[in-house]
Computed example of a mutant assay.
Amino acid sequence: MEQKAPDKRERISTLGQIGLQQFAPYLMNRIMGRYNATLRDNFRRQHRTIPQVRTLAVLSVMDGVTVGDLSVYTVIEQSTLSRTLDALEGHGLVRREPDASDSRVRKVYLTDKGRAEFNRAWPAMHDAFERMFDGIDDAEYAALIGTLQKMLNNIRMHEI
């Protein structure tokens, strides 16, 4: 009887065997680290941090999100998000309101001033995004997005 060749993941057991340039988590961290570093300098000129702008970005797309869901969407720990929301609320960029059906739950909304602040940050974000995908055609981009969505589905801990 013919033996089946071992699965690629079964054959490779160490990071040294995989190599950093073939280890997707390493590459994803490097890419996002570079993306954030590029934006950090721009946001400093606006007196904003990466977590603040990330929060404004999510709220610009889906307003009225619970704090818990916002933590998931922004990939910011709740303690950091709480401080971030305090700062944004203090500058009049967001507002927190009790949920109509459960007063213990707080929803976060973008104010007009917050939308304007995000709109000032967006061109730098879009430029960095465009540079990141320079030379990558639509089919490659679609394949990457499909793969990333499958990966997120494999590891996610939340329904969102």
Rank of each mutant, 00 (worst) to 15 (best):
residue 137 D to S: 10
residue 120 R to E: 14
residue 135 G to Y: 06
residue 90 G to W: 03
residue 41 D to L: 06
residue 27 L to H: 13
residue 4 K to F: 10
residue 99 D to T: 00
residue 23 F to G: 03
residue 26 Y to Q: 13
residue 95 R to Y: 00
residue 135 G to P: 12
residue 157 M to D: 07
residue 79 S to F: 01
residue 72 V to C: 12
residue 129 F to G: 14
residue 160 I to E: 10
residue 160 I to V: 15
residue 5 A to S: 04
residue 86 D to H: 08
residue 155 I to Q: 08
residue 109 Y to H: 11
residue 92 G to T: 07
residue 26 Y to H: 15
residue 135 G to W: 05
residue 109 Y to P: 00
residue 72 V to G: 01
residue 24 A to L: 14
residue 89 E to H: 08
residue 145 I to V: 14
residue 87 A to S: 09
residue 153 N to D: 07
residue 70 L to A: 02
residue 141 Y to M: 09
residue 69 D to G: 12
residue 74 T to H: 04
residue 89 E to V: 06
residue 144 L to H: 06
residue 58 V to C: 03
residue 118 F to Y: 03
residue 76 I to S: 08
residue 104 R to C: 07
residue 68 G to Y: 10
residue 44 R to G: 08
residue 3 Q to K: 06
residue 137 D to E: 11
residue 85 L to G: 02
residue 149 Q to A: 15
residue 22 Q to C: 13
residue 109 Y to V: 01
residue 119 N to L: 14
residue 15 L to P: 04
residue 108 V to N: 00
residue 7 D to A: 15
residue 143 A to G: 04
residue 91 H to S: 10
residue 137 D to M: 13
residue 157 M to N: 10
residue 118 F to E: 00
residue 122 W to G: 01
residue 160 I to N: 13
residue 111 T to K: 11
residue 153 N to R: 05
residue 153 N to V: 07
residue 139 A to Y: 09
residue 138 D to M: 09
residue 116 A to H: 11
residue 74 T to N: 03
residue 86 D to A: 12
residue 116 A to N: 13
residue 69 D to I: 08
residue 125 M to I: 09
residue 132 M to P: 01
residue 29 N to E: 06
residue 156 R to T: 05
residue 30 R to T: 15
residue 149 Q to W: 10
residue 76 I to M: 08
residue 37 A to R: 13
residue 72 V to M: 12
residue 15 L to K: 08
residue 137 D to F: 06
residue 134 D to E: 07
residue 95 R to I: 04
residue 156 R to W: 05
residue 87 A to E: 13
residue 68 G to W: 07
residue 4 K to S: 07
residue 124 A to R: 15
residue 122 W to I: 06
residue 11 R to L: 09
residue 37 A to E: 09
residue 69 D to R: 15
residue 8 K to S: 11
residue 111 T to A: 07
residue 120 R to H: 10
residue 82 S to D: 04
residue 88 L to G: 02
residue 16 G to Y: 10
residue 146 G to Q: 13
residue 81 L to Q: 05
residue 157 M to Q: 12
residue 126 H to D: 11
residue 71 S to M: 00
residue 141 Y to N: 06
residue 68 G to R: 14
residue 63 D to Q: 03
residue 37 A to N: 15
residue 146 G to I: 05
residue 97 E to I: 00
residue 90 G to E: 02
residue 56 L to K: 01
residue 138 D to G: 15
residue 54 R to A: 14
residue 158 H to P: 04
residue 133 F to N: 13
residue 41 D to T: 06
